[in-house]
Computed example of a mutant assay.
Amino acid sequence: MTVAFKHKVVAMFDFARARRTMVDCQVRTFDVTDRALLSVLEDIPREHFVPEDRKVLAFSDQHLVVSHNIEHGRFLLAPLIFARLVQALELVEGARVLDVGAATGYGSAVLAQLGANVTALESDEAIAERARELAAEFGQGRINVVAGPLAAGYKADAPYDAIIINGAFETAPTALIAQLADNGKLVGIDFDSGAPKAVLIQRSGLATGSRTLFDAPAPLLEEFRAPAKFVF
């Protein structure tokens, strides 16, 4: 496909209709019932957060790679998995949220338009810069994009009422849990057992509890990979 033809295809594509289809055929059918969340998902132009040559794939039911700048790339979670994770946080207006592995900032934009004050954490400065550009356009003035190691979180804006990890982790996100406010919630994909499942971890004082939400295949975030085990 030539470059000119690619641009013609993108120009002809009905993105608004694709967003409605994504919400109606993927998200709603996966037990997402939060009306505010459904409305935001339909309004935010997800296609702006992916590379030009992947715009028509922005609404597919798959994890979508948006950058190859870092090892194993950075991606947007499949819409239905992302939406279920956000719904589980039960956000209220003004909630302080840490968006870990924010990539180009689509999830941060959704959280901000739901009324959250978001710290978008990305480990690659080039991706973070793109997230800043998009946050200025779609973030409602509620997004602070920062660059740094994902597993370390971002203490400067802690404590957080909610934390979302955009991918799977093999090692416990201990540093992130420590940055939760009392009764704060963390959601992500636990890959420790080898069978990835979405989990919700909640802090209560010095104690934490967790529960499984649903099966959720997702790419492993390199920063949360367990050390290799030596076999003798």
Score class of each variant (00 low, 15 high):
Ala103Tyr: 06
Lys197Arg: 14
Val100Glu: 05
Glu93Met: 11
Ser108Lys: 09
Gly73Ile: 12
Asp34Gln: 04
Arg203Ser: 03
Ala207Lys: 10
Asp182Ile: 07
Pro217Ser: 07
Gln26Gly: 03
Ser39Phe: 02
Gln202Thr: 08
Asn144Leu: 12
Glu125Thr: 12
Gly205Cys: 04
Val199Ile: 14
Phe30Met: 10
Asn144Phe: 00
Ala152Ser: 12
Ala16Glu: 15
Phe30Cys: 06
Asp61Phe: 05
Ala216Glu: 07
Leu57Glu: 14
Ala120Ile: 09
Ala18Ile: 04
Val23Leu: 07
Gly167Leu: 03
Phe49Lys: 10
Arg74Pro: 00
His63Cys: 09
Ala131Pro: 05
Val97Trp: 08
Leu221Thr: 00
Pro149Trp: 06
Leu76Ser: 01
Leu121Gln: 06
Asp182Ser: 07
Ala16Arg: 13
Val97Asn: 08
His48Trp: 11
Ile201Gly: 01
Arg28His: 06
Arg225Gly: 00
Thr29Met: 13
Asp53Met: 13
Cys25Lys: 15
Asp24Ile: 01
Leu80Pro: 00
Asn166Cys: 04
Leu221Phe: 01
Asp24Met: 08
Leu76Ile: 13
Arg46Lys: 08
Lys185Val: 08
Leu111Phe: 07
Phe224Met: 07
Phe82Ile: 02
Glu125Ala: 14
Ser67Val: 09
Glu47His: 15
Phe232Tyr: 14
Phe232Gly: 13
Cys25Tyr: 10
Glu42Asn: 15
Asp43Asn: 14
Ala162His: 03
Val231His: 14
Ala103Thr: 08
Leu64Phe: 11
Ala109Ile: 11
Val187Trp: 01
Pro196His: 06
Phe15Thr: 05
Ala58Arg: 07
Pro149Glu: 14
Glu71Ser: 13
Gly205Lys: 01
Gly139Arg: 11
Asp157Phe: 05
Pro219Trp: 03
Ile164Trp: 01
Thr104Lys: 13
Asn166Asp: 02
Asp99Ser: 09
Thr21Trp: 09
Arg203Ala: 03
Arg35Thr: 12
Glu122Thr: 07
Asp182Trp: 03
Arg28Glu: 13
Gly107Val: 04
Ala126Thr: 15
Ala131Cys: 12
Asp31Glu: 13
Asp99Gly: 05
Gly167Tyr: 01
Pro51Val: 13
Thr21Cys: 05
Leu80Ile: 00
Gln113Leu: 10
Pro79Leu: 05
Ile163Glu: 04
Val86Ala: 06
Thr174Cys: 02
Glu137Arg: 15
His72Arg: 15
Phe75Asp: 04
Ala131Val: 11
Arg54His: 14
Ala58Lys: 07
Lys155Ile: 08
Asp161Trp: 02
